[in-house]
Design a protein around this nucleic acid. Structure first.
Length: 198
DNA sequence: ACATGGATTCGCT
DNA sequence: GCGAATCCATGTT
């Protein structure tokens, strides 16, 4: 396997968000492996980005974002969903990439089990599409906060090669309050991929 | 301590 | 396309 190491994450969030498209996210649970290809991401770009959780500076909640590239920044939203982010850039630079959707590759049955008490899921394409669902399906929670994805035994990324995907850019979701930053095209997806959310 | 509101999702129209 | 569900962590909204 060709695992991504720390240096891969030491770049601005916008570049990382693009480079992560087409990479394989691997989650090792005690019941087996779940693999999915990243097809949709969003970049959150530091304290001046009014949609970024770092917009009020460093707090207890967002401190992982100030860590080195490759750390996991996970948080609870709407009191019921987790959102999974990978920290980008150098230490002290609060940038991160939200993983919004995966194309299921392996461990689909296991992912469905994890979603059992979640809501109704119909097709395979609905299992990992959407940041909240994706976390539930991969069994990701607060215990992954600050985990280093470059060295963790429970979650990591692999470069599976292949052609560089065609990237589609659009506005980020659910951040209308972010003024001019609400219009930035910092949501990236693989053009035409069925597994992109929404 | 406590009010506030959110990087969502599903189901109904 | 819209509204409700739902509840924890945050704290210049």
């Amino acid at each position: 396997m060709n695992r991504l190491k720390s240096d891969f994450f030491e770049k601005p969030a916008i570049n990382l968000a693009e480079d992560l498209l087409g990479k394989m996210l691997v989650r090792k649970t005690d019941k087996g492996l779940i693999k999915g290809k990243i097809v949709e991401t969003e970049a959150y770009v530091g304290e001046e980005d009014l949609a970024c959780h770092a917009r009020f500076g460093r707090t207890e909640r967002n401190k992982a974002m100030y860590g080195k590239g490759g750390l996991v920044y996970i948080y609870l939203i709407y009191g019921m969903y987790y959102n999974f982010n990978i920290v980008a850039g150098a230490e002290h630079v609060p940038e991160a990439v939200l993983i919004r959707a995966l194309e299921p590759i392996e461990g689909i049955k296991l992912a469905r089990e994890n979603l059992k008490n979640y809501g109704r899921v119909r097709a395979d394409k609905d299992i990992l599409s959407g940041p909240g669902k994706l976390c539930a399906a991969l069994n990701l929670d607060k215990s992954f906060y600050g985990e280093d994805i470059a060295s963790s035994k429970k979650i990591w990324l692999e470069d599976i090669g292949g052609a560089k995907p065609v990237v589609e850019k659009s506005k980020r979701v659910g951040i209308d309050y972010a003024d001019i930053y609400a219009d930035k095209l910092w949501r990236l997806s693989i053009k035409g991929n069925k597994f992109v959310s929404k």
